[in-house]
Design a protein around this nucleic acid. Sequence first.
RNA 1: UCCUCAGUAGCUCAAUGGUAGAGCAUUCGGCUGUUAACCGAAGGGUUGUAGGUUCGAGUCCUACCUGAGGAGCCA
Length: 436
Amino acid sequence: MKTERITIGDASKHVGETVQVPGWLYNLRKSGKIVFPLLRDGTGLMQCVAVKSALPEAVFDTIKDLTQESSVVFTGKIRADQRAPGGYEMDVENVDVMQHIPESDPYPITPKDHGIDFLMDHRHLWLRSQRQHAILGVRHEVIRAVRDYFDSHGFTLVDTPIFTPAACEGTTTLFEVNYFEDEKAYLAQSGQLYNEATAMAFGKVYCFGPTFRAEKSKTRRHLTEFWMVEPEMAYATLEDVKRVGEEMIVFVVNRVLENRRAELKALERDVSKLEAIQTPFPRMSYDDAVKLLQSKGSEIQWGGDFGGTDETLLSQEHNRPLMVDGYPSAVKAFYMQPEPSRPEVALCVDILAPEGYGEIIGGGQRIHDYDLLLRRIEEHKLPKQAFDWYLDLRRFGTVPHGGFGMGIERCVAWICGLEHIRETIAFPRMLYRLHP
RNA sequence: UCCUCAGUAGCUCAAUGGUAGAGCAUUCGGCUGUUAACCGAAGGGUUGUAGGUUCGAGUCCUACCUGAGGAGCCA
């Protein structure tokens, strides 16, 4: 009879059975005639027990000499045991070694401390460690929840191009691609303009994909390549955008709390901070935010954008994400709809995550009037020709519409309580990091 | 692009301008319930690179390289 292969995650269903578990050796503790190999398989960690007196000498010797991260298949009987890290233990009966990593060239990431540079250089291996594994598990849950939210609220996924002919927002720096015959192409920094077109076709849409920013940013909040989800809604106002934003965030946080408790625990995340995330989110105008910041000693003047420290100060005021609306039009993108009674401010909103994490969502209502949009394009000295199709949307059945973009990595960093965004993506691309 | 800090054993870090050290990892030995196991021993170095000051530089000075944190900009 063939022994069944199981994963560590399913160990609880096989207590008392003799099974095979394929995996990698996470660590090994020896005590003379008994050894404790700790096996990792991507679904969890399981402590195994090999007793010399109960095994053929060759099998015991093979196990006791295993090296960290060697690939092995253990065969043995599963048993519940409180002393084991995962709650279940295997009494090893046999081992099949796929690859024994040689002692002369051992696995570089030992169970002790390492510096960030070393770990980033070995990112392809670092992903195997428990903490990184937990973070990427939460990331997966966040992405799944985001898609489930939009899919179950009438949104259609319509993905937007990565190669684009012009800047979406004139100011930011773009990655140039020299391939297309007659003109330069750029890597997308947002799918929003295209979303506006598809929203007029489907009503409610979202896109989800990588975006690229060639900013020389070098902070804990920045990646050169990051993933963004961008919903866009026809016949929508700023209020609609805010409501969807807060609902979606609460939905995502609840999903992670439901399905990723173990990961949050591994990350030592204070889950009470996440359990406090409920609608409605506190709201504040840009005007009031500036006054508040000034009272706290910030240098900010009305008309300027918030610095990182300003965002941190604001978001620490509340235990829920904070919505700040009505930024000066001058600091926002050209397509932002002005407030009718105060054209100098825009119908836009930023959502700042609590605990000092800063902006995770930026969005607003878009200009739907042809003449105003054309004027803005000219004021920003953008090439009108490149925006002809975008202007067309205002010629053929224009309606008020809006949406937002959420940076997945910033959201994951906040939910996981991480110091730095670089751990929220498998292979981060940053100003000075392209490898591995 | 600018500012600040750092670079010493495979890794994490010590070392008043005066003999280059420890823990982990590796190798050898010991231990039948370990939890980053523990105990004993051994091997392991062109102190990021190039100049300079000095009787003498890991340490001081200059330039460069690499990285980290931050600013501006942004999600």
